[in-house]
Design a protein around this nucleic acid. Structure first.
Lengths: 356, 356
DNA sequence: CATAGGATCGTAAACGTTTACGGGACGCGT
DNA sequence: ACGCGTCCCGTAAACGTTTACGATCCTATG
């Protein structure tokens, strides 16, 4: 046949094989780096595949070997977590992909529709066998998704620990540590009435954060005052709202800890409206990398981390639980508390002791 | 056999079939709503499937019918567009999914790694046949991806028109209209020196936006002054930068048009630092839904849109080009300019004429 | 009663790939 | 000459599903 067209429509491995006058089995082995194939012919095969633009059909491959080479990152836009912005996930994917790419694994994001139950959504995706493994975020305090994945024996790692996590792998931000050092720092500056803004404690991070706050107060011999705990959403609006409620507390606190930096923007605005100057009349400490808060004035004292690095760690933790890849990451921790770094600003720099 | 366990491990349609003592073909037809199956047995099948938690293996299904029932949304984090920040994509998916769900189509997001060429990435995904159709964003002024998809006969719609789009479907924001009415409005307030901040014109939206700006000036008999065009990134930093450059233009402009609302936050900050009050000393008009800009003071005059609705429209436009679904959307436009609504604020409310 | 035809179902091929298995060619040592 | 091992390759089965086709049963009609 003379129609050995250049970039003709490439149907499948079969066409590629007869174009090369080689059996289809050999072509497959050549492409997949299997042994038992002459180095000479392997080169020919690879060249031809490149030229004709052949890429293996994913369905056929998955069907045969029961694996998809795809890792799923489930995302949802819940307004109670600090993980629901495009920036957060795009930051993560960068780190995730840098690891996954080494193993020829692809990452896809699975956005759970707002009107669907996350559990049911995940169930569907898992049953369809569209991913080999999962990364879940916005972990709830009790999270059925974890049981589901465990039972289905789908490798996974959750961003955020949960009561449901038995010995399942997770990475969680160091809410406890952050709450503690925030309190420590404020107390060292002379503050005794320290408010805190956190989301509803259905979300585990809210729970842990608050727990760290309470234990830190106790450590300093400061009585826990429930009226200083402000329940708001972790958004800019939430910060505005927090500022509003803060101003109405009698015997106003002299400092406030925010669970999410983004809230600081709203908080500043509300305070400024009321003539209260952040950093002079009220100390503020924030939390988590948030580029949008970068320009605040006075500069926010906060805890930061690298989303990219977190992504890297997540990927490694996940792969370590997958038999086919675990040997690459022999001493990866199954659970991990992700540290954050204090970035001193001026929002909490005034000393009450000196001022009084 | 007595081991008709409840939620035993469900291997496939075969197990389901012999559990029901029905042929595997009938089960398949029953599940897929095909005719030629007794309504009675269909119910039995559906019930059993539900009970045993059977969901069709996606690979087998895709392989057979050459379709995946998955729509891909390609995303990348380029810092030059207005589509890569905050919750743009999460906002879109909400609308997209509300339409796709009706047809039992799933949406996945395909994040292009930052170190990979978007074109190559897309090519890989397409060749693998992992999606039936594509939605691409951050369209470039010339965009090879469009040729690729056209040639591969993969249905797609692009958010943003391009020189490369022949008669391929797209939806684009009404940059032209926005630029025109922004200029109109400012001119009506007496402004003659109107600056504009936009990204590099490799990005098509920058080009179109600027074009609208120029033609509007011309319409009003105002000479186009290149020194009033500020090239910055479409971020908060970009806005800050824009403010900075703006202050250094001699014979300072009295108004500025921003291509992206988020920039307003940075701009306000820079202006305030310099003692220039937005809305009094400089008129500002922004563009695009951006919740973070909601609290700016003075309130930003801007153009807004619903991301959800845009997602709906994108999905419909896409489905209209897919033979299997086109009859659902008979009179869907192939190309569309997405209108934005002017939300008057106070950032441009002062009249130069009155002031002088 | 014969037959047509509709309703319902079973059978088997096909989708594209990977991989276990076996076979041929060749080299080497005995 | 024979046996054995190595290297390379072809053959065919298998993955789970859908669907074209044909078979069976039942009913209505002539």
């Amino acid at each position: 046949m003379l129609s050995g067209g250049k970039s003709q429509s490439m149907k499948g491995i079969r066409q590629l094989a007869e174009h090369l006058d080689i059996s289809i089995g050999t072509v497959s082995r050549a492409l997949n780096g299997k042994p038992d194939v002459n180095e000479e012919t392997r080169k020919r095969v690879l060249a031809a595949a490149e030229e004709l633009g052949y890429v293996a059909n994913q369905s056929g491959r998955s069907l045969r070997q029961g694996t998809t080479n795809v890792i799923g990152l489930m995302i949802e836009s819940s307004k109670e977590t600090i993980e629901d912005s495009d920036n957060f996930f795009l930051g993560l994917t960068s780190g995730l992909q840098s690891v996954l790419a080494r193993h020829k694994l692809d990452l896809i994001m699975l956005p759970c529709p707002t009107d669907e139950d996350p559990y049911e959504y995940l169930k569907r995706m898992v049953a369809r066998r569209v991913v080999d493994a999962m990364i879940i975020s916005a972990t709830q305090r009790v999270d059925k998704r974890i049981d589901l994945l465990s039972k289905a024996k789908i490798p996974f790692v959750s961003l955020g620990r949960s009561q449901s996590s038995g010995n399942s792998p997770w990475i969680d931000l160091d809410f406890d540590g952050v709450a503690n050092s925030a309190v420590d720092r404020l107390v060292a500056h002379g503050h005794r009435r320290i408010a805190i803004a956190a989301p509803s404690s259905d979300i585990n991070l809210g729970y842990i954060f608050l727990d760290g706050y309470r234990s830190a107060l106790e450590r300093h011999g400061i009585a826990y005052d429930p009226s200083l705990v402000i329940r708001v959403k972790t958004s800019e609006q939430g910060g505005y709202q927090a500022g509003h409620e803060l101003l109405q507390i009698d015997n106003r606190p002299t400092a406030v800890i925010l669970i999410y930096e983004l809230m600081a923007i709203g908080l500043y605005r509300r305070l400024t409206e009321a003539g209260v100057i952040p950093g002079r009349d009220l100390a503020v400490i924030g939390f988590r990398e948030e580029p949008r808060a970068k320009f605040l004035q006075p500069a926010l004292t906060c805890f930061r981390m690298s989303l990219h690095d977190l992504g890297v760690e997540l990927a490694q933790t996940l792969l370590a639980t997958m038999p086919a890849y675990s040997h690459f990451y022999p001493d990866s921790e199954r659970n991990m508390i992700w540290p954050l770094k204090l970035i001193p600003g001026e929002s909490d720099s005034f000393h009450l002791l000196a001022a009084q």
